[in-house]
């Protein structure tokens, strides 16, 4: 934490310090650096949190659910409705995957709001791995269900034969751009939000060290931090929802191509 403060005369807080990867347990498998880092630690904690919420909180199986059981049941129903609305009834088979994905991203985002925690989803490699998993999985499901008929997804009906090659090329690129836009959206939102929080916190420190007038001036950025923290909680939930709902839409495309 020493590097966080007291850089010579500059901004009092380094907003990017929170995203640094530090190795906790060095591990090297076959020349590949597979160390257990702070990122891994917070992913494990996220999985524990999801498991706690979905397994232990509903252990009581009360007819009148308590607080934790209510949260688990509400998130279950929320994701179930989302899958049904966006992927159709035959998309229900893939509900476990969508639910795991949604809960992982949601709780990773929420845990990142704890002070001194690490934001797992602020690294593009993590979000890209999730998006690539969705992309490859959905493509395999599409080909497994429809064989070559899945390629109808790239051929919109009612297009004149002259411009068909052009349209197909554009459709293919549009399809390939999905994992990129999916991962960049989540990563950029989390990164930008946490940097904003840190920068405003830096304003408070910088102003309050400038005498009495500065302390009164520091109230303004402090009020901003409170507001932005609330906004960040909204963004955390919203981005998990967007990721899951787009996964459902892509799944719907794979199950029913040619719409």
């Amino acid at each position: 934490m020493a590097a966080q403060n007291g850089q010579d005369g500059g901004f009092p807080v380094d907003p990017l310090h929170q995203f640094e990867i530090t190795t906790l347990v060095p591990l090297n498998i076959g020349g590949i650096d597979a160390s257990f880092t702070n990122s891994s630690l917070w992913m494990v904690l996220t999985v524990f949190a999801v498991t706690f919420l979905t397994v232990f909180a509903v252990r009581g199986r009360n007819m009148i659910p308590g607080r934790m059981q209510s949260i688990a049941e509400m998130s279950y129903e929320f994701v179930a409705n989302m899958v049904r609305d966006n992927a159709g009834n035959d998309g229900q088979r893939y509900f476990p995957f969508i639910f795991s994905l949604f809960m992982f991203i949601l709780l990773a985002n929420f845990l990142s709001m704890l002070p001194y925690s690490f934001t797992v989803t602020s690294h593009i490699i993590v979000t890209f791995a999730l998006a690539a998993l969705v992309f490859v999985g959905v493509t395999i499901i599409g080909f497994a269900k429809h064989g070559l008929g899945f390629l109808r997804l790239f051929v919109p009906s009612g297009v004149p034969a002259v411009i068909l090659p052009l349209v197909v090329a554009i459709e293919v690129i549009s399809y390939l751009s999905r994992p990129l836009s999916l991962s960049v959206r989540l990563f950029a939102n989390m990164l930008a939000g946490h940097i904003t929080l840190k920068v405003f916190a830096g304003f408070v420190i910088a102003l309050s060290s400038a005498g009495v007038a500065g302390i009164f001036g520091a109230v303004l950025p402090l009020a901003m931090i409170v507001a932005i923290t609330a906004l960040e909680f909204l963004v955390c939930a919203l981005q998990a929802y967007v990721f899951a709902v787009l996964t459902c839409m892509y799944l719907g495309d794979a199950l029913h191509p040619g719409h």
């Binding site: 690129i173 751009s177 960049v184």
Partner: peptide, 22 residues
């Protein structure tokens, strides 16, 4: 901010993937 950021990432992803393939 949500919808606007979504639009921009959708557009940029298309351009980057197209450029990458080329």
């Amino acid at each position: 901010m949500g919808p606007a950021l979504r639009m921009s990432t959708e557009f940029i992803a298309g351009v980057i993937v197209g450029g990458g393939i080329g």
